[in-house]
Design a protein around this nucleic acid. Structure first.
Length: 393
RNA sequence: GGGUAGGUUGAGCAGGUGGUGAGCUCCGCUGACUGUAGAUCAGCCGUCUUUCGACUGUGGGGGUUCGAUUCCCUCCCUGCCCA
């Protein structure tokens, strides 16, 4: 059995082994963390505030969840990472004993940009809760994540819209590199892994430079950031090609942050991505949209009011086993809380089931047909050209 | 029976004391959502029209007037008070 492991720091609290497959750069792997093992490619449901919205840890287990994501920024503001530490850490606090990866707050630099100010030392935010000022630096991001006790922490990074002027994209990338080194220097917990994040927008030269800088550091894993933030599908694929090529021979686990949609999984898996996280499955579920191999459907649409069938005939989740589309359509119209939970149960089950089918497809050669069926039905309703570049922040 | 307050586009309202009433919130219809300030947001929501725009609509009927949602008469309906 050939593995591509290596490059991991000798004292890494995680281990990762992977096998190449016949499909592009896709690989099958196994990530072992202090709280459990993760089969890759794998998807992490997002639980920003110590909860995957509307789902219990039991729901997550039933859906096949192996690892979830929590958030430094939100949890440090409320309830506070010191409090979570006093209460036994994030796993115990939220009742999830499986692996947890925490995001560093870097994305909030981007999404809450107008509430904050970035300088070389760190970020100053106005809290979205009460407007009070808060400071986040690479050292603080590590300190907070160590207090939370996640299995995997993320380095603090800065991402900008790829449509910004090149000098801004480059400046954010250089800041990310400097912060990466400071995060590594600030680590104090040997039982927590730390991933570095590659930036550089959609510029191939900057991406290569960023991969070189981040991959040279003793991180336990490599994340690809700054994508799925407004660039086209073609730009995302091309950028993933550049990153994969530059990472060739690096055996560490690779995590594409903020992706995605069913179609995007295939694009990224074929380019060597092992881990994903995204709010999409749970967010669209709360807004009435559920996914199946036949595509997307909005259960708020009138045509489902008399539809007595399940969301998905092929799904064994609680929603599909026990309830009809008509029932869900009713619950959404009546603003009943169960609608959010059942739709989320289904979408997480579908997404994790899709990842499982991707893994088995890679193993038994049926990957291509799976990709063709799913991507055909899950093409974005929006044409590429409909999405204008974001120019303000 | 007497008095009083009302009757506005599916619902609930706003407005309008003689000079072009389509404004709001629900409901309804559709779309969006990618490291979660999101159980959110956007568009549409009288008729015709792709749009521009045109037309209709203030309980019914009648009257005054160049012109009535507004003033007058009458009828109908609803709430409340008194008999």
């Amino acid at each position: 059995m050939t593995t591509t492991s290596g490059h991991l720091p000798p004292s890494s609290p995680i281990s990762f082994e992977s096998l190449p497959t016949p499909v592009g750069r896709a690989r099958l792997g196994r990530l072992v963390t202090p709280h459990g093992t993760v089969d890759t490619p794998q998807f992490m449901p997002v639980g920003t505030q110590a909860t995957v919205k509307s789902l219990t840890p039991g729901d997550l287990r039933a859906a096949g969840t192996q690892i979830i994501l929590g958030n430094t920024y939100h949890l440090s503001l409320r309830p506070g990472h010191e409090r979570i530490a006093r209460l036994g850490g994030l796993h115990r606090f939220m009742g999830w004993d499986g692996p947890i990866l925490t995001d560093s707050g870097g994305f909030q630099v981007f999404s809450l940009g107008h509430l904050g100010r970035v300088d070389d030392d760190g970020v100053t935010f106005a809290s979205h809760l009460d407007g009070s000022p808060h400071r986040l630096t690479p050292e603080l991001a590590v300190e907070i994540q160590e207090a939370l006790g996640s299995d995997i922490a993320m380095a603090l990074d800065e991402l900008v819209d790829p449509g910004r002027p090149p000098d801004e994209v480059e400046a954010a990338m250089r800041r990310t590199h400097a912060w990466a080194e400071r995060c590594l220097a600030a680590r104090a917990r040997p039982d927590q892994a730390l991933f570095g994040i590659v930036q550089g927008g959609v510029d191939p030269a900057l991406r290569r430079e960023s991969v070189a800088a981040i991959a040279a550091l003793p991180f336990d894993g490599i994340a690809i950031g700054g994508l799925s933030v407004g660039e086209s599908k073609a730009e995302m694929a091309a950028t993933l090609d550049v990153v994969a090529e530059a990472l060739d021979g690096d055996g560490r686990v690779r995590y594409l942050m903020g992706v995605g949609s069913p179609a995007d999984f295939f694009t990224a898996v074929e380019r060597g991505v092992d881990l994903f996280d995204c709010v999409l499955p749970t967010r669209v579920a709360r807004n009435g949209q559920v996914w199946t191999d036949a595509g997307r459907m909005n259960l708020r649409n009138a045509r489902f009011l008399d539809d007595g069938g399940p969301i998905d005939d092929d799904c064994a989740c609680e929603a599909c086993r026990n309830h009809s589309r008509a029932y869900l359509a009713h619950l959404f119209r009546a603003d009943e809380l169960l609608a959010y939970r059942l739709a989320s149960v289904h979408n997480v089950t579908y997404t994790l089931g899709l990842m499982r089918r991707i893994r088995s497809g890679l193993a038994d050669g049926t990957y291509a047909s799976l990709r063709d069926v799913v991507t055909e039905q899950h093409r974005s309703n929006r044409r590429e050209t409909d999405k204008p570049p974001v120019t303000d922040r």
